[in-house]
């Protein structure tokens, strides 16, 4: 049996409604959410959770995966579009759009574009973000959610735009970089959702990530602590109850209590760094997360779907 706990009522404000509380619409340009976090913290699950939440609120949602992560197809609601972007294909598309025709393919395949890319670091990141921008401006979706790469790469992705603007003085790359920068820095349209687990290293990296996000002037749209275990069940054990536990049970329970205290400490460090509340998403007693379970987590987080 898998139980879903209701999250704290103060956290039921859906991040895609931030910052002004109005629903985004495709006409005004889709709201873009960048889901960022360290590897293994559940970025993809969180992306799917946000997609369920926004979909349940009646919005048209597009989820963008980088480098073909297919589990998003498996975890997102049926009515949500999922598209995959790879850096190589995005660059090729971009060159095609710029009228380079067959050169685009030859360049992309020769490896020489890689050498050229080094002359302008971040060109791949720029074309991926450019693709996201393009999706957001097409007018088909109200919300575009990007399952961004893991932390280290995500911060370089965010800073790639200003880095490129420093290097490239003119031409199509510069225009593209300016467009993307405009979108990233528009708090009304774009925001980052930071995901972490309650463990020490992920929280440390998330705190670094938060300052990196601030340094590039991207708004923070939400913060999620994922996979919080139900260890709090154990902290109410009385001394008397504890003393009666069989030894092998006491051992694992003590370890769980210690872990719970460490988690609580890590969550408060995260909250302090953010200066806002975070949403905690409970870890389920399953190794096999599926669409229905993510939908239940989304309902617990953001409420029942609108009819």
């Amino acid at each position: 049996m898998v139980e879903i706990a209701m999250s704290d009522a103060s956290n039921t404000v859906a991040p895609w409604l931030l910052p002004d509380g109005t629903l985004p619409t495709a006409e005004r340009g889709a709201r873009v959410l960048l889901v960022l976090g360290k590897g293994g913290v559940g970025r993809t699950t969180t992306t799917a959770l946000l997609a369920h939440g926004a979909h349940a609120a009646g919005l048209n949602v597009l989820v963008v995966a980088i480098d073909g992560k297919s589990s998003l197809h498996r975890l997102c609601p049926g009515g949500v579009d999922v598209r995959s972007v790879t850096a190589g294909s995005a660059l090729e598309d971009y060159l095609l759009d710029q009228g380079f025709g067959n050169f685009a393919r030859r360049l992309a395949q020769s490896g020489v574009i890689e050498v050229v890319g080094a002359a302008a670091p971040g060109i791949h990141d720029l074309v991926v973000l450019g693709k996201v921008k393009q999706f957001a401006n097409i007018g088909q979706h109200d919300v575009v959610i990007l399952d961004a790469p893991a932390t280290g790469h995500a911060t370089s992705m965010l800073s790639s735009v200003s880095g490129l603007l420093d290097i490239v003085e003119g031409g199509p790359i510069r225009e593209q970089a300016l467009d993307v920068q405009r979108l990233l820095m528009d708090a009304g349209r774009c925001g980052a959702v930071v995901v972490t687990k309650a463990e020490t290293t992920p929280v440390n990296e998330s705190i670094e990530l938060i300052s990196a996000i601030r340094s590039v002037d991207v708004a923070l749209a939400g913060a999620i602590v994922n996979a919080v275990e139900p260890d709090e069940l154990l902290i109410n054990l009385s001394k008397k109850e504890h003393s009666r536990l069989p030894a092998q049970v006491a051992e694992v329970i003590d370890a769980a209590i210690a872990r719970h205290q460490q988690s609580q400490h890590n969550i408060s460090r995260f909250v302090n760094a953010l200066g806002t509340s975070v949403m905690e998403v409970e870890k389920l007693s399953t190794a096999d997360l599926n669409r229905d379970l993510v939908a239940k987590l989304a309902t617990a987080a953001y409420g029942e779907p609108v009819s």
């Binding site: 260890d231 536990l245 049970v249 694992v252 190794a287």
Partner: peptide
């Protein structure tokens, strides 16, 4: 028998753990 004598919260927690462990083996 041991399980029957555990405090409810500990039994619930252990149940959660073994569900997860079983699920991991299944996948």
């Amino acid at each position: 028998e041991t399980s029957g004598h555990l405090p409810a919260s500990a039994a619930e927690w252990l149940g959660w753990q073994s569900e997860l462990a079983e699920s991991e083996r299944t996948v």
